[in-house]
Amino acid sequence: MNLRRLISIVVKELRQLRRDRLTFAMIVGIPTMQLLLFGYAINMDIRHLPAAVLDQAQTVHAREVVAALGQTEVMDFRYFVKTPQELDALMRAGKISAALVIPADFERRLIEQTSDARPWPRPPLQIIVDGSDQVVQQAAAQLALLPLQALINPGQALPARNVEIVNFYNPERRAPVNTVPGLIGVILTMTMVLFTAMAIVRERERGNLEFLIATPVSPTELTIGKVLPFVGIGLVQVTVVLVLGVAIFQVPIRGPLLDVYGAALAFIVASLSLGVFISTLAQSQFQAMQLAFFTFLPQILLSGFMFPFEGMPRPAQYLAEIFPMTHFVRLIRGIMLRGAHLSELWPELAALAAFCAVTLTIAVLRTRKRLD
């Protein structure tokens, strides 16, 4: 081995890396992004869950309990309703993740907590949680441990059971019910973005772009033509996950199956548009894979699939709202687990449509039928 020749090769590789600005940026960008996401944005503390209050007692103690629970910052009481039907509508639409129900006989139940007349007095409070999100169940369990009497009269904490947890949509608390719908988004993100990110780049590397230049195909037709074949592939993947999820894990599909595919189709198009946009930035298939991976991590970690969305700092939440997977997780869980319709979840659908419009427009504008 000749040390001089070896050093020459090393210097040559470093110079080539310096000219490849995208790869050089990824060397710094990927560890920086991972550090920020895991160390700052990913917070297991659950705070500010959107919630509603159904106060059927309308007493001073009931209002004190609502105020005290609000000060814990676990639940953010945004709605005060009068009927259980209003609670059900808000939860189906995904506007709330939890609800505090104070029964009409709240004062009597509170007295029973201090008496020995009944061995198992009824809990004075009821917390209804959205079982389609496992994180919300954990937050409700934390609130159930709070001493109710201490909230009203500090220093008089009682060991009695004060809160009854009612788990909507997943009463058995089975983990696959929460994870399988979100896995549809993870699988589609990893395949659709990567496939299309390499589509145009592959044409350039293999020399097929010369043939496309000689054809009367417009940039719009070229971009859409690259996207359409993968739409069918994405729908096949959705079908496979649904069939296996129902057959093996008994995951329910409470909403219309047509709405499930409608939400999946919107997300597939959004992911493909992101992939096509990435392909217009990359100069090689390796760069395309790097950029695709660069979008995987924030989408999976910030979408609410793995970590509590409400526990993230505001800047991380604003960033998450940009990515299509955040809206798809809300859509697919709402339809499959809560039985909601697309019309009830239209804000998430509108966000996906806006993302598609922006990324596809930029991709079309950046697509040029020229080798340079």
Rank of each mutant, 00 (worst) to 15 (best):
M1R: 11
M1S: 14
L3I: 13
R4D: 10
R15E: 06
L36W: 09
L36V: 15
L37S: 02
L37D: 02
F38K: 05
A41R: 04
N43P: 08
R47L: 12
R47A: 10
H48S: 15
L49S: 00
A51N: 04
A51Y: 02
L54I: 00
D55E: 01
A57P: 02
V60G: 12
V60I: 11
V60T: 11
G70L: 02
D76K: 11
P84C: 04
Q85N: 14
E86K: 06
M91Q: 11
R92F: 06
A93G: 10
A93C: 09
I96V: 14
A99N: 10
A104W: 01
E112R: 13
Q113I: 14
Q113C: 03
R118G: 07
L125M: 00
Q134L: 14
Q138C: 07
Q138S: 10
A139F: 04
L143H: 04
L146N: 03
L151K: 12
Q156C: 11
A157Y: 02
A160L: 06
A160M: 09
R161N: 11
V166S: 10
P171K: 01
A175G: 09
V177K: 05
V180A: 11
G185D: 08
I187V: 15
T189R: 15
T189N: 13
T189D: 06
M190C: 13
M190H: 07
T196G: 04
T196A: 11
I200R: 14
R202C: 10
R206Y: 13
R206Q: 15
G207H: 12
E210C: 10
P219I: 01
T223H: 08
T223Q: 12
I224P: 01
V236N: 10
V238H: 11
T239P: 06
I253K: 09
R254D: 00
G255F: 05
P256D: 14
D259W: 08
Y261A: 04
A266K: 06
F267K: 05
I268Y: 02
L272K: 01
L272T: 05
G275P: 01
F277P: 00
Q283M: 07
M289S: 15
Q290P: 05
F293Y: 03
Q299S: 04
L301N: 09
G304R: 02
M306C: 07
P308L: 15
G311D: 00
A316L: 00
L319H: 02
P324W: 05
M325Y: 06
T326F: 07
T326I: 14
T326W: 07
T326E: 06
L331K: 03
I335M: 12
H341E: 15
S343M: 09
L345V: 06
A351E: 08
L352E: 03
A354G: 14
C356A: 15
L360T: 08
T361H: 10
I362V: 14
I362Y: 03
T367K: 02
R368E: 13
R368T: 05
R370M: 08
R370E: 14
